[in-house]
């Protein structure tokens, strides 16, 4: 069964059809990339899946459950995590605390329990801390734990965001242009990291402009153009696809 199943998804803004009749699905354990020139509807598609904006038509099923009417925090609680194109790190918090926020759905302490610092809250807190430190190690920046997250380098902030997204223990991870703003070395590091995350059993959907990264790590690619699905295939065949080359790879290699 597909982990994520999108059927006839559409969204229009006024007269503009940003996403139009898109269908595809994600099998558990794969990395799927969504590519397309600027304005193709990639970000809108992402926001629709996450529940950030309501859809106009179509269905989205996650783990067999319809999620198109759920709010984004409810979808996150079901096991879908995401990162943001323009990093949304929580300022004024350390890298570790940022990752600890990611553990939100795996912990329970409410206002009363937290204010009274009940024993189970105390234990839970210790577990959150332990898990978050482990995740910082996974993304290979354990040394930044106590640094203010906003003071870290761009690449490190991406890593914090990844660790934060993983903290919830998601079954699906959505990466919104993870390589944006990274240099080639950092991008290579990122590719290795994403592969490592995949090996942990996390399914990944990513939107990306960096073609080398996409071709490197993706199992399948969906190409969008003007809000429509142009092609869906394995990377090797996408590179051969005449229509894709024409609208995208051909004219706009480094978009």
């Amino acid at each position: 069964m597909a982990l994520l199943e999108i059927k006839n998804l559409s969204r229009s803004f006024g007269g503009l059809q940003a996403v139009s009749d898109i269908s595809f699905s994600l099998v558990e354990g794969m990395i799927k990339a969504v590519i397309g020139p600027n304005g193709a509807g990639k970000t809108t598609l992402f926001n629709l899946i996450c529940g950030n904006i309501p859809l106009s038509a179509g269905t989205i099923r996650f783990q067999g459950q319809h999620i198109e009417r759920l709010k984004s925090h409810q979808i996150a609680a079901l096991g879908m995590s995401r990162t943001f194109q323009n990093i949304k790190i929580f300022p004024g918090m350390t890298a570790l605390e940022n990752v600890m926020v990611g553990c939100h759905t795996r912990s329970r302490a409410g206002f009363i329990a937290a204010m009274l610092r009940l024993p189970q809250t105390f234990r839970e807190e210790r577990e959150i801390r332990r898990r978050s430190l482990e995740l910082l190690e996974l993304v290979e920046i354990p040394q930044t734990a106590d640094c203010e997250a906003a003071s870290l380098s761009f690449g490190q902030q991406r890593a914090v965001e990844l660790a934060r997204a993983l903290a919830a223990g998601p079954s699906l991870l959505l990466l919104d242009e993870p390589a944006a703003g990274l240099n080639i070395y950092e991008t290579a590091e990122l590719a290795r990291l994403i592969t490592k995350i995949k090996e942990l059993g996390v399914t990944i959907l990513l939107v990306e402009h960096d073609m080398s990264l996409v071709m490197d790590i993706s199992d399948e690619i969906v190409v969008l153009d003007f809000g429509r699905k142009l092609a869906e295939d394995i990377p090797a065949r996408i590179q051969q696809n005449r229509a894709v080359i024409q609208v995208y790879l051909g004219d706009d290699e480094d978009a």
Binding site: N52, S72, H73, V101, A109, A114, E124, E125
Partner: peptide, 23 residues
């Protein structure tokens, strides 16, 4: 606590906080 972190996260970015499952 978990709640305090959630509050600071909301302060930082409500969109990102929601993506962490915070209501």
């Amino acid at each position: 606590s978990r709640v305090g972190r959630a509050l600071r996260a909301i302060h930082g970015s409500e969109e990102a906080a929601a993506a962490m499952g915070i209501n």
